[in-house]
Design a protein around this nucleic acid. Structure first.
Lengths: 148, 148
DNA sequence: CCGTATCCATTCCGATACTG
DNA sequence: CAGTATCGGAATGGATACGG
């Protein structure tokens, strides 16, 4: 699979991001990490996934610099997986996934979990794509300038 | 694979989004769709992927309501795959992938393709997660309220 | 409790050949 | 050009057994 290497070296930032996190388990693990999960079994139970797969995905995330391993906060001899600064940089992406799901994949009135600002208890504002002047920009007002 | 069904019915919007687009090829196809690709071979050449896989992924995107099939704009008897309104709702997500890649996955000075506002030729503003008052919110000031 | 190792079934992927 | 059909190899996923 020459694929793996070529994507991670691609001149397109989307391709590199997809190479790093474009996998269903990785995205769900990251969601849980943002939601406060830190322990192996916490991820495992929350996601209901096989432990060998979880082990593999956690390693990928650590290797990719999105999670780091820390000694457990309780007395136990084990470790915890916590988001790095690079990991936190994925927050807008997770929010985008969440808001897309909320607005497009639930029928009206259907209940779903919600991301709230802790201080106010209110949901966040919808993400908006803005230009440098702070004006909202739709996709058709943009274009990709390829690297030559 | 009970997985497929359970995720698409999950009470978490992130899970449903991941179920729909949490795949490397799907995300890259969508990137190219936002970049103007419409024809089968356009996607195929741009991505260098096997045609049977592309066929499968395009079908998934059409079934998921993200793309729709239209008669070709030139005289040919073929069809084009264009983003639906639901597909356009993924714009912030694609932008998030791009900006994460730009800021985290390129060394400084390394060249990469860029998404520009067509009118001004300038890059877009960085996505920000805001509360209802328009104040920027970091991940640790939020929490997920689970559905009961 | 925290993982790793192994086994087996399923899926995915790329290459190729084929049809309209 | 725009796909579909098939085939073999690789990767993935779940279950389980095992060791720290």
């Amino acid at each position: 699979m020459a694929e793996r290497l070529s994507l991670s070296q691609a001149p397109c930032p989307v391709a590199r991001s997809v190479d790093l996190i474009g996998d269903r388990w990785l995205l769900l693990i990251l969601r849980d990490a943002f939601d406060g999960s830190r322990r192996f079994s916490e991820f495992q139970r929350g996601l209901g996934m096989a432990r060998n797969i979880l082990s593999d995905r956690l390693r990928r995330l650590v290797d990719g610099g999105l999670l780091t391993i820390q000694p457990a906060s309780d007395g136990s001899a084990w470790q915890e997986y916590v988001l790095t600064e690079r990991g936190y940089a994925l927050f807008p992406l997770i929010v985008a996934l969440r808001q897309f799901g909320e607005s497009e994949l639930f029928s009206s009135g259907e209940a779903h979990s919600q991301l709230l600002e802790s201080a106010s208890g209110q949901p966040l504002a919808a993400l908006r794509v803005l230009n440098q002047q702070g004006e909202e920009i739709s996709a058709d007002l943009t274009h990709v300038k390829k690297i030559t």
